[in-house]
């Protein structure tokens, strides 16, 4: 009897099948769409919340940063190195055979104004924060930055020269709002 009941539901052929199948199809499709729409908030809620996004840009006043001084600024929970480069540092950064670089990049491609170098202070090897922001810090052979974790050395343009890091220190998105303020992010 169970089987006859089952065939009763699925059995009858002919024009009835088309109408019935359409109903099942339409309902199934509507249900699937509803389930997908219902699932969306669960997934989307894991994206950065409004307060996290609000802190995704930071404005930095460059006026107090002396020539030769390097400051660290927090942006999106990460350290950003803001270096007011001396003429010598800029010259050393330009005076480079790009072929020799592991991650070839001209200095001019890394800065908007040559005296201001702005880059994310996270070593591209395994994520430590390189030393070199303070004058007393080791800066490596190229007088840029030196990562104490595994010995990566960056030049005055933040490019990788020696050690295991595969890439140059990242340049974040930034813009000059005035001659002495930037917005990062």
């Amino acid at each position: 009897m169970a089987s006859s009941a089952q065939s009763g539901a699925h059995g009858a052929q002919g024009a009835g099948v088309k109408r019935r199948d359409f109903l099942y199809l339409a309902t199934g499709a509507a249900g699937a769409i509803g389930a997908a729409i219902a699932a969306w908030p669960f997934i989307y809620s894991m994206n950065p919340a409004a307060d996290v996004l609000a802190l995704s840009t930071v404005e930095v006043d460059l006026a107090p940063v002396q020539t030769g001084q390097r400051i660290t600024v927090k942006w999106r929970s990460q350290p950003v190195f803001v270096a007011h480069r001396t003429e010598d540092e800029v010259k050393a950064a330009d005076d480079v055979n790009l072929e020799e670089l592991r991650d070839p990049q001209a200095d001019s491609a890394r800065v908007k104004k040559p005296e201001w170098l702005i880059m994310v202070g996270i070593c591209t090897h395994l994520g430590c924060v390189p030393l070199g922001q303070k004058p007393s810090d080791p800066r490596g052979e190229w007088k840029g930055w030196f990562c104490p974790c595994h010995g990566s050395q960056y030049d005055t343009s933040g490019r990788i020269r020696k050690g295991p890091a595969p890439a140059n220190l990242a340049i974040p998105q930034y813009a000059f709002l005035t001659d002495t303020t930037i917005r990062i992010g």
């Binding site: 539901a9 109903l23 309902t27 509507a30 509803g34």
Partner: peptide, 21 residues
């Protein structure tokens, strides 16, 4: 509105499936 439509469809399906019982 979506749920009312979907529930209406489900009711039609239910009636159809149960028509032989």
């Amino acid at each position: 509105i979506f749920l009312v439509i979907l529930t209406g469809l489900l009711y039609a399906v239910k009636r159809k499936v149960w028509s032989d019982v």
